[in-house]
Amino acid sequence: MIEKPIAFIGRIIADFTHEINNHLALIKESSGLISDICKGKKSIDKKEIPYVIESLEAIESQIHKSVNFINYFNRFAHRMDNLKATFNLNSVIEELFELLKRYSNRKKVSLKYSLPSNLPDVNNSPFIVQFALFYAVDSFLKRSKPDTTLNVNATKEQNSLKITIRYEGDIVEDSFQQMWTPSSVQEVLAITNIKISINDKMITIEIPV
């Protein structure tokens, strides 16, 4: 049972390190360009100044992006501190979607979510909720076509919060990618009484409240 959550964490770490490598590559090339321009000189030519300024601005902007991205990853890591915690659904979705942006961009699928402002906080495992959301997103992305959308909504029911993940677009019917079986995912979600139901283009996750 543990293999699916481990695969999920592995996926997030792999995408995170890939993205950070890209950030570092830009910082390295920008600082390298400044070094190339200034090396062995006491002063730089006027025409080279825009390149230096542009590079410094690129470094500053990239560091800012990297810090934000690392903060999302750090928050994701702390979601595993305790099996149960009180959390805001909006924040766990925002965090997960930021970390999955590279994956969805590569598939040209837009990840959207819009949750009502009056949703109560959840007392459950934020990690397992993210795992369920990841399963839903991943299972659609593996069969998605470009320029499509995944929409996440949530409603408060009598004894639960219901999250729906709806795929809008055509599905690739003969996807060769390996999918997780719903029962193996349900087995993990059952640890904190989360339920999942799966249709062709919609997955519903129910979190007890």
Binding site: A25, L26, S30, G32, L33, D36, Y51, E54, S55, Q62
Partner: peptide
């Protein structure tokens, strides 16, 4: 696809 990376690398190789 990273335009700033392309710009810096282009300039460095041009130099």
């Amino acid at each position: 696809d990273e335009s700033e990376l392309v710009s810096a690398l282009t300039e460095r190789l041009t130099l």
